[in-house]
């Protein structure tokens, strides 16, 4: 589904990704873990088009998407959430979701002026879908509030439902549990599990090991900009190399 080959990315003198090769398979939730600075977020940003890799290549399904713009990737079925919530704070929750409606249909700029009825029809349809998604994460009653009014956990849920509005085939989740209260983490886990059952694949970057344990079919451990090992949750958490990577090799 997603094939990353020899991707490198430097920030000044710091090498965030170094010849990073990893394959994410269809039909799975793959978790990416690793200590801070291991390059997890950089990898996600390179895949989603937020950053352009310095070297290497990225394939999504059967297309080479190295350096592709985020909106192109979104149209190919790739959605993402952000480590620090990036809700569109002056837009309502509903508007946040509607923005992701029909991404592959290039928005006709003047259609709302000259063909208003059609645009309103399409919008009403999208509103129903959006309200369904908001209901699913329990945010439907807040649909008309601006996103700035939400709590940290609610913002994460909003981002997830907004990503789903794209009807994605794969969703990259960048620390969805960070800063979220434990009961809300449970809600998130359930929502993600349900969605996976419906055929959406996930790449999950996460520090919350409960979440990783609950969701992941496979875990990739990253250290110093490249994958260290992969395996199921149990195998990686008992591996000596992983412990060393996390503890910096001091012990």
């Amino acid at each position: 589904m997603l094939t990353i080959v020899d991707v490198g990315k430097r920030f000044g003198g710091v090498s965030a990704l170094d010849k990073c090769s990893v394959e994410f398979e269809s039909g799975k939730i793959t978790a990416v873990i690793g200590p801070n600075g291991a390059g997890k977020s950089t990898l996600l940003n390179c895949i989603s088009g937020a950053l352009v890799p310095d070297s290497g290549s990225i394939r999504l399904f059967d297309d080479d998407v190295t350096g592709a713009k985020p909106h192109i990737l979104a149209r190919k079925g790739l959605a993402r959430t952000f480590q620090i919530s990036r809700e569109l704070s002056s837009l309502t929750l509903l508007e946040n979701l509607l923005l992701a409606d029909r991404p592959s249909d290039p928005m006709s700029f003047f259609a709302p002026v000259f063909r208003r009825a059609r645009v309103l029809d399409e919008q009403a349809e999208a509103v129903n879908r959006a309200m369904g998604l908001l209901r699913r994460v329990g945010l439907d009653r807040l649909a008309d509030e601006t996103a700035s009014a939400l709590s940290g956990g609610q913002k994460k849920l909003l981002e997830l439902s907004r990503a789903l509005m794209l009807k994605p085939r794969v969703v990259l989740l960048d620390e969805p549990a960070a800063g979220v209260a434990p009961p809300m983490v449970k809600v998130l886990i359930e929502v993600i599990r349900d969605l996976h059952a419906e055929g959406v694949d996930f790449v999950l970057v996460e520090h919350n090991m409960d979440m990783v344990a609950a969701l992941s079919d496979e875990v990739v451990v990253m250290a110093e900009g490249t994958p260290l090992m992969r395996g199921d949750f149990k195998a990686v958490t008992t591996d000596a190399r992983v412990a060393e990577a996390y503890l910096g090799g001091v012990v």
Binding site: S48, G49, A50, K69, P70, H71, A74, R75, A79, R80, F82, R86, L88, S89, S90, L91, E95, L98, L99, A100, P103, S104, M107, R162, M165, L166
Partner: peptide
């Protein structure tokens, strides 16, 4: 709404296919 999204956060607007 898309224009306001671009104003508020262009990376998000882009990630949502705009």
């Amino acid at each position: 709404a898309a224009l306001r999204a671009v104003r508020d956060d262009d990376l998000v607007a882009s990630s949502l296919g705009r």
